[in-house]
């Protein structure tokens, strides 16, 4: 029963992911037929513009959306595990915003200094920002045990960071404002192969390390006392968990800007789908689910009002925010 459900759920996720991948290749401001896309992918296309669209625009964007979406969902799952709080997530806790602020500041500084920030530099500054926000949140969580207080503080941190970012953007060079502004609202547009080549390995390494943490994570889910009694080295585990979740969300923010609600909503949907919270199942499930979720949202962002594009957070909020409300309400009786 249990195994059948798990298998069916994974099959469902994989199928959804494949369909969304195909749709993302075909649809857009220029609609391409599946046959045309297939010919481009197999290298038999004669239509140069189609090949260009698929190869240089849609393919990297689609890979980035899938991988970063997955990373975001896993990061959310890690944070929820860490805080024992089902509505924790990188965006809700202000970690994405902290990363955004640092990236924005670094970009402005580097551009005014006359050089372009590399992908690694972007990730590094995002990571620093994420860690700064995380530190603040940890300080708060030491004092406030209530999940509602924690989340409200996270959202406040997010607002402060956004305000500072907006402030910095206002004083940035004209030439970069459009670009920066677009990015700071969150978007997968303009994703290049160069970015993909950096973000895929970084995410992959983080995911593998996360997956290796699934055993202590399962123990930690019961509570600290239980985990310690089972022989989990709590200090080390906590550090690893925080580093990994911050790195994953920093990676996302560095390339696509802050993306809201994916980190909260996807793990919750996956828990419901799998009726389990075992890290061994949830980590791959969150990755697949997050990938599918972001592909869907990106597809909608690109196509609904084509040729103009919506910010990705606008779309994810439409789907994600109701999930958060749902979680809050269904949890109400237990704690908060």
């Amino acid at each position: 029963m249990d195994k059948r459900r798990t298998a069916a759920a994974f099959f469902l996720l994989a199928a959804a992911l494949l369909i969304l991948l195909a749709l993302n290749l075909n649809l857009g401001s220029i609609r391409l037929s599946p046959g045309e896309v297939w010919r481009v992918l197999t290298g038999h296309s004669t239509d140069l513009s189609a090949a260009g669209i698929v190869r240089t625009i849609r393919l990297p964007r689609l890979i980035a959306a899938a991988v970063l979406g997955g990373a975001l969902a896993v990061s959310g799952f890690l944070l929820q595990t860490f805080f024992g709080n089902p509505i924790a997530g990188p965006f809700v806790l202000g970690i994405s915003s902290g990363a955004k602020l640092m990236v924005a500041l670094s970009m402005i500084l580097s551009l005014s200094g006359g050089f372009l920030l590399s992908s690694a530099g972007m990730i590094l500054s995002a990571f620093l920002g994420a860690m700064a926000s995380m530190g603040l949140i940890l300080l708060i969580s030491g004092r406030a045990k209530s999940m509602a207080v924690l989340v409200i503080c996270g959202i406040m941190i997010g607002y402060i960071c956004s305000a500072v970012t907006d402030f910095a953007v206002t004083f940035a060079d004209d030439s970069n404002i459009v670009n920066l502004h677009n990015w700071s609202r969150g978007s997968f547009s303009g994703m290049s192969w160069e970015s993909v080549r950096v973000l895929v390995p970084v995410t992959a390494v983080c995911l593998i390390l996360t997956f290796l943490l699934s055993k202590p994570m399962g123990a930690y889910q019961l509570g600290e006392v239980y985990a310690r009694n089972m022989g989990v080295d709590l200090r080390r585990f906590r550090v690893e968990l925080i580093l990994l979740s911050s790195l994953l969300s920093a990676c996302v923010t560095a390339f696509a800007g802050p993306i809201s609600f994916v980190g909260v909503a996807v793990p919750h949907l996956m828990r419901r789908l799998f009726r389990s919270r075992q890290p061994l199942k949830m980590i791959p499930a969150c990755f697949l689910g997050g990938a599918a979720f972001c592909l869907l949202c990106d597809l909608l962002a690109r196509t609904v009002f084509a040729p103009s594009e919506l910010s990705i957070s606008t779309v994810t909020a439409v789907f994600g925010a109701p999930v958060v409300i749902w979680v809050m309400l269904s949890r109400r009786k237990e704690r908060v």
Partner: peptide, 16 residues
């Protein structure tokens, strides 16, 4: 952990 197990007063969080 193999030699000693502890049953605390804290209830484990055990959703699902």
């Amino acid at each position: 952990a193999k030699a000693l197990s502890y049953l605390p007063t804290d209830r484990p969080s055990a959703d699902l």
